[in-house]
Write a protein that binds this DNA or RNA. Structure first.
Lengths: 205, 205
DNA sequence: TAGATTGTTAATCGATTAACAATC
DNA sequence: TAGATTGTTAATCGATTAACAATC
């Protein structure tokens, strides 16, 4: 099957989560129209996205919630569990460690790193905090998929280098600063300030 | 001047921040090529973005850092301070209250709301926590621009309703769940789980 | 002048939307 | 059958990139 654009992937993941919610409410059938109302996306776009996979819908009826969810999941997630490691156990890092969404079966936070002697060795929410220097060793042992940067911006490049050095090639960067990495490494940024200002300016004009 | 696309706005805000950094390092001239290396965006795109404004660059030389920054800021931010109110003083909410980026002159967190009697009345990082019901009154008084939702997903719709009721029409939603709001209200979501899974799946295929 | 860099116009690319055929 | 909904093809829209002229 063809490689999907990033935006499509994100939407499909949203469908999966929405379908999970519907299943909990015992809604076993759902139309693209209904998914549209819940997600705010257009029904055409939703059908187009779904049509990337083996067809599962029935005209006049819609989709079987469970089947659609399974179809989408099988293609995107394949029963994988994503292993995360966290860099920086400050305010934001601690919040991430306690984030409820990271304690499902799909995502698992396996280790944290910091430079603060007071934090090292402790466990936060069941996750041990290691000294930064041990990152390469620990990461190789626990086969992490993604590194999360939640350190002050002054240290984010240093940490990014450690992550790359450890063989991880996917980074989620919360520091409000760009990082330089080899081309093969994928970086996504979650930049609170930029999101706030962008929302403000956009609605402004 | 014409309305800019959202993506352009976000990039321009990134340029502004990058230029600030360059000024701190006393680099008073900068070319689109150099900005490209720092931000990872193409130099053509950067020049295209900049060309939306009064031209300020000199062929062969580049841009005067301070002038370019001022030009971009004047158009986008106009010396405004963005006033935020926060809903939910849990782990994530507390981290947001302490987030260093929200204590510059451009962004100001002016009030927080929660339902927990133990938190109400306290000050976190100089910001007072009010009971949720007082949101409309407090918000009107402090002229908030943006409401941040950092409550469990079960309560996010309720909180969104409060925000809309208070007259705010811009929402940043951290809850991993869609919310329903009137069309005039702009919502942006920061959904950790979705970002993690999307990064994983995208790099996967 | 030569060369580097800006700024703009045209071409390309990708994503969204519209239209509609297929089907239950 | 009639009507609703899926799924696909074509049209539109917007954003990015390529090409190049302008200029210091």
């Amino acid at each position: 099957m063809k490689k999907l654009p990033r935006k499509t992937i994100t939407r499909v993941l949203l469908y999966i989560r929405t379908l999970e919610g519907l299943l909990k409410e015992k809604r076993y059938l759902v139309s693209s129209r209904q998914l549209s109302e819940i997600t705010g996306l257009s029904d055409v776009k939703i059908r187009k996205d779904i049509s990337n996979f083996k067809s599962v819908g029935k005209p006049r009826v819609g989709y079987k919630t469970a089947d659609l969810k399974k179809t989408l999941e099988n293609y995107l997630l394949q029963n994988h569990t994503v292993h995360l490691v966290l860099f920086g156990v400050g305010n934001l890092g601690s919040a991430i460690l306690k984030y409820p969404g990271f304690h499902q079966k799909k995502i698992k936070l396996v280790a944290a790193f910091d430079v603060d002697r007071n934090k090292i060795g402790k466990k936060v929410n069941g996750v041990r905090v290691y000294p930064l220097e041990r990152a390469p060793e620990v990461i190789k042992r626990c086969r992490a998929d993604i590194g999360i940067i939640a350190v002050p911006k002054e240290r984010c490049q240093e940490v990014a280098d450690y992550i790359v050095l450890s063989g991880i090639h996917r980074i989620l960067n919360f520091a409000p600063h760009s990082i330089n990495v080899p081309e093969k490494v994928q970086v996504r940024s979650i930049d609170f300030t930029l999101r706030i200002l962008s929302l403000f300016c956009d609605a402004q004009s």
